[in-house]
Write a protein that binds this DNA or RNA. Structure first.
Lengths: 248, 248
DNA sequence: CGCAGACTTGACCGCGCTCAATGCGAGTGG
DNA sequence: CCACTCGCATTGAGCGCGGTCAAGTCTGCG
């Protein structure tokens, strides 16, 4: 259901909720047997709330934990020496943030809430200890990290070969399918990020993003008013996104 | 030393060589205690040779193992539905290939030798079993995979924000530092890949790569004849590459 | 030697960036 | 309630980087 997750249970137990979490089929518990879920719950700090713009962790500060998005959304970005921001990803409910930092003592990027967001925290030392004991959980971690590597490759591909229209169509479709996975509408949703975030992420100028949005709108592919977005013709969007390959 | 690794030892033991391998400080054995190295050696198939262009594994075939480059070099690429190739990475000695495939039953990309190349093979089932027993090795795997995620982000950044000159300068410097890590010359080496590979990887046209090479040469930054490359002014190259690929 | 593939060089042009102005909604204070 | 501001979004004009197309040159290999 599209019901928001209840964050503060009235029960006396603050942490007994991986069992009930509607995201348990997306998040870490996926790979875990019912009777092992308790051990995962033991190490998780659940449901901490961040408001829009608040930092979940900061680049170059000591790496302590990975974070799962329960509700809301998160963006991660790298700040270059020159002070420029490069957004490296958007994270939706059920997705794990911080995997790119497991190679250092410090976080490789900064994570910020794009809206009011609920976050579960997995301390990395305890997580590693646990994955050592639970082969399925370890396998799932490898799975998630490898998926993240592939996402990076997909993004690199998008950035290196595709036009502005193709990039934006691809992003909209990606968001759409991720909303659907959460059993929310995949055709009518609110963009959690600003146009400038989209531009930054896709390697475009804000003006270009704006232009493409209006072009899509004129073509009847989408209907956008501010952050409110409706996908009117998903098939046509997919055609645009995959059209990076049309010369025979 | 810049000595090539001896591939076929005259000793009767074919596999007793993680101990002697000059890359053991880069590859998986890094995290392993001396007395645990034997257990890693037990699962490794060492020193298989591939000639230029030969496939180490193919996209969409069953995922069986990760591979470490001992000598030579490897490129990985994704073939899109339309048959286009997108190169996702170049791998030098000591680097692990195939980490992006640990999320699927099949390889996510194709890996090919760029030159005569020696490869060690780590069957993934045994590797996972081993990392479950050896926390340091597990930690090292997380480290390597997270590093790979970061490389992806760096590449995406390079592709989305930087000019042709900046991208090429960054690639040359990356290769340089990776050669140096192998204790080979970082200023005079042979490019293992064709111009078209560089172009594909960096999201440029071959012609652009060629033009930038000659421009750099005219500016006295490099000296290139075919694949033979000399970096004449590393500082200037770093200035050109600017805020692109930084790994500290 | 000759051929094929790799590399270089030149001419042209279009996508998307830059600069600049305007539109628009939300929050604030008089 | 309007006026003002501030951040975000849209729209327009101009141009430069890098892609495309087309020759031409170099290189390795049979």
């Amino acid at each position: 259901m599209a019901q928001p997750i209840r964050l503060h249970r009235t029960s006396s137990s603050l942490k007994a909720s991986c069992h009930q979490c509607s995201l348990s089929n997306l998040c870490l518990p996926l790979a875990v047997e019912e009777n092992e879920l308790d051990r995962l719950e033991d190490i998780v700090q659940q449901g901490r709330i961040f408001n829009r713009g608040e930092h979940i962790f900061d680049q170059s500060t000591p790496f302590r934990a990975c974070f799962a998005v329960r509700s809301g959304s998160v963006k991660t970005s790298i700040i270059t020496e020159s002070g420029e921001e490069q957004i490296t990803g958007f994270f939706m409910p059920g997705e794990l943030v911080g995997l790119d930092s497991m190679s250092h003592e410090t976080y490789a990027c900064t994570a910020r809430a794009l809206e009011r967001t609920s976050i579960c925290e997995f301390p990395v030392d305890k997580l590693e200890e646990l994955t050592g004991k639970m082969p399925e959980l370890q396998h799932h971690m490898y799975h998630l990290m490898s998926q993240e590597i592939q996402n990076g490759h997909q993004l690199a591909m998008l950035l290196s070969k595709n036009t502005a229209e193709e990039r934006i169509a691809a992003l909209l479709l990606s968001l759409s399918s991720r909303f659907e996975r959460r059993r929310m509408s995949g055709t009518h949703f609110s963009l959690p990020m600003a146009r400038s975030d989209i531009a930054n992420f896709l390697g475009l100028a804000v003006e270009t993003v704006s232009r493409v949005f209006t072009r899509f709108q004129n073509q009847g592919l989408i209907k956008a008013r501010g952050r409110d977005l409706e996908l009117l013709d998903v098939d046509a969007l997919q055609l645009v996104a995959r059209d990076s390959t049309r010369q025979d």
